[in-house]
């Protein structure tokens, strides 16, 4: 279009520059500081634009002297579990919701809807109790029905999932936002697709596996990445569910490093290195895969 856009383009450019500066500022400060040795840092007496030479030394310290490398592995496993559960369970459920004619559709959809509105952090107190003894609901049933007496099982079964990968991941995976995204996507597919598959001799399972799954690759990859990052950045729940450093994910480990030794002068360069260390995987992921993630989530239509 032919029109004068000079003033608005200048304004847009200024806004973008300021915005990017705001986003990058803490990251740049963290990085600059992470390149300093403790002595250099103390000598500077605060934030400077100096690029030091000690980044690798600091990294080596993090790598050998802290639990963060092991905790990074915990983060990878937990985040992968979260993303896998969220994608797989929501995929099969949404397939049922969209392509099956069943009276329960509304109820199932409603049940998943509520999990989106009440985040896990809200109910962390009682979730902890359940994960501490996952047999608790079974015990109630045993006690209420008297079955515990009859079968000799009693009603005091114990199975704690605290400090396990599944115990940390499962409650995080409950928020069923994927159902909405997949539902939106499935509804946009040609309506006759399952009919065509039926004419070709493919039943529901075959249709899901041969046709729906490959078709859904874009939203599946996007949501997987997104929930992986979401699982990675969780804090409150892993903090209470994983009490030992061995079981904690990296974000919790970093926060412990920062807050437990309050009385000492904080080793700021080391902490900043740690902060970068626990963040680089998801940030790299979002920077590289951004196009796929944004396109696949299809957030424009809600």
């Amino acid at each position: 279009m032919i029109e004068r856009t000079r003033s608005i383009d200048i304004a847009a450019r200024i806004i973008l520059i300021v915005g990017v500066a705001f986003i990058l500022a803490p990251l740049v400060i963290a990085f600059l500081t992470a390149t300093l040795s403790y002595e250099q840092f103390v000598r500077n007496g605060g934030i400077t634009l100096q690029v030091g030479t000690h980044f690798l030394d600091n990294l080596a310290y993090i790598w050998t002297e802290t639990a963060l490398p092991a905790q990074l592995w915990n983060s990878i496993v937990i985040s992968t579990l979260v993303a896998a559960i969220k994608c797989a369970f929501a995929f099969t459920a949404t397939f049922a919701l969209v392509f099956f004619d069943n009276r329960l559709n509304r109820i199932v959809f409603g049940l998943t809807l509520v999990t989106v509105m009440l985040p896990l952090e809200l109910v962390v107190i009682t979730t902890y109790q359940i994960v501490a003894n996952i047999a608790m609901p079974l015990n109630w049933i045993l006690a209420l029905t008297g079955l515990g007496e009859i079968t000799g099982l009693g009603s005091d079964l114990r199975l704690s999932l605290l400090d396990t990968y599944v115990g940390v991941a499962a409650p995080i995976a409950c928020a069923s936002t994927s159902v909405f995204i997949y539902r939106q996507f499935f509804l946009s597919l040609p309506r006759d697709l399952p009919k065509a598959a039926a004419m070709d001799g493919a039943g529901p399972w075959r249709f899901m596996w041969d046709i729906l799954l490959p078709l859904s690759w874009t939203p599946l990859v996007a949501t997987f990445m997104f929930w992986f990052i979401g699982g990675w950045t969780q804090y409150l729940w892993p903090l209470v569910a994983a009490s030992t450093p061995d079981a904690q994910p990296a974000v919790v480990g970093l926060a412990r490093l920062a807050t437990t030794e309050q009385d000492r002068i904080p080793e700021v360069p080391m902490l900043m290195t740690g902060a970068l260390f626990v963040s680089f995987i998801p940030v790299l992921l979002i920077a590289v895969m951004q196009r796929q993630i944004v396109r696949g989530l299809n957030l424009s239509e809600k």
């Binding site: 990675w232 804090y235 974000v251 902490l271 902060a275 979002i286």
Partner: peptide, 14 residues
């Protein structure tokens, strides 16, 4: 992609 708890550590310093 940055956890609140991680950037919190940075912002304390900032």
């Amino acid at each position: 992609a940055v956890a609140g708890a991680s950037i919190g550590v940075v912002f304390v310093f900032v």
